[in-house]
Simulated assay, not measured.
Amino acid sequence: MTYKTILFESCRGIARLTLNRPDRLNAFTAQMHEEVADALSEVEANPAARVLLLTASGRGFCAGQDLTERDVHAGPLDLGKTTRTYYNPLIRRLTTLPLPVVCAVNGVAAGAGVNLALACDLVIACSSARFVQAFSGIGLVPDAGGTWALPHLIGQARALGFTLTGGTLSASTAAQWGLIWKAVDDEHFEAEREALLEQLACGPTRGLGAAKLAIRSAARATLDEQLDLESELQRQCGLTNDYKEGVSAFKERRRPDFTGS
């Protein structure tokens, strides 16, 4: 597929998916959804991929849905069809990819753009970034997993306040609340992003993917179910080459050379 709304490349274990409609603050259209889905298929099919970066071009991260694509006066719109066709599959794929997904929020994230970021495993934001839960301003409910992610990450009281008031959070407040992992000064943002990607790309990919699965499963599991899942994942990880390499490196007091296998 030839991409017109995103940029995609994969090199040295790092897959980079960049939303690329800067003139529209990288708002989603049907075409962008289709291109993102195709790029994720490339990641899933590439055994050399060790980490995925999701970021955006221009001054903003993502303004959510491009509302200019919708004619609200042409007749009733089935927005549930939009979420079922595009947003729900996207969020499910990001949360279940068997490798770490890093979201680098380079500017404002609004509406579904916030919730897209929250579907990633590690979210870092430049200090000038802002998070806007904009759905209340157009009479809608947060989608793209927002109503699940927000109370799980910041609690019901903050989730309701953020959502019902259409509030704006600074990157530093988002980090303090636990909405994102880290806020980084703008001048250090790119360097910290690249250091994180390099670290993850050199890590034990199957072990990191299993840890991601376990932590994401915990919210809907009982303790007994979680203990059983940990045992099964630990069994699988114990059979990997990276586990052997990690133990060998520990015994030999050297840095491990993980291969992701």
Rank of each mutant, 00 (worst) to 15 (best):
M1L: 05
M1W: 11
K4F: 03
I6Y: 08
R12K: 05
R16L: 02
L19V: 11
L19P: 00
R21V: 03
D23V: 06
E34K: 10
V36T: 01
D38R: 03
L40Y: 15
A48C: 03
V51Q: 10
L52H: 02
L52V: 08
L52R: 03
C62T: 04
Q65M: 03
Q65C: 00
D66Y: 10
V72E: 07
K81V: 13
T83H: 12
T83N: 02
Y86A: 03
L90W: 05
L90V: 02
L90T: 09
R93W: 08
P98N: 14
V102K: 01
G111W: 08
G113S: 14
G113R: 06
V114F: 01
N115I: 02
L116N: 08
V123F: 01
S128W: 08
A129V: 01
F131D: 07
Q133S: 11
G137W: 15
G137M: 10
I138H: 14
I138A: 05
G139Y: 14
L140E: 13
A149Y: 09
A149F: 15
H152R: 12
L153V: 11
A157C: 01
L160M: 07
L160K: 14
F162N: 02
G166T: 14
A171M: 04
T173W: 09
W177V: 01
G178A: 07
I180D: 10
I180A: 07
A183V: 08
D185L: 12
D186M: 06
F189A: 07
A195P: 00
L197P: 00
E198Y: 11
L200D: 09
L200I: 10
A201M: 03
R206H: 02
R206V: 10
L208I: 09
A210T: 12
L213G: 00
S217G: 01
A219K: 05
R220I: 07
T222R: 04
D224N: 12
E225C: 07
L229M: 11
E230W: 04
L233W: 08
G238H: 07
G238V: 11
T240A: 10
K244D: 04
K244W: 08
G246T: 11
S248N: 12
R255M: 09
G260M: 04
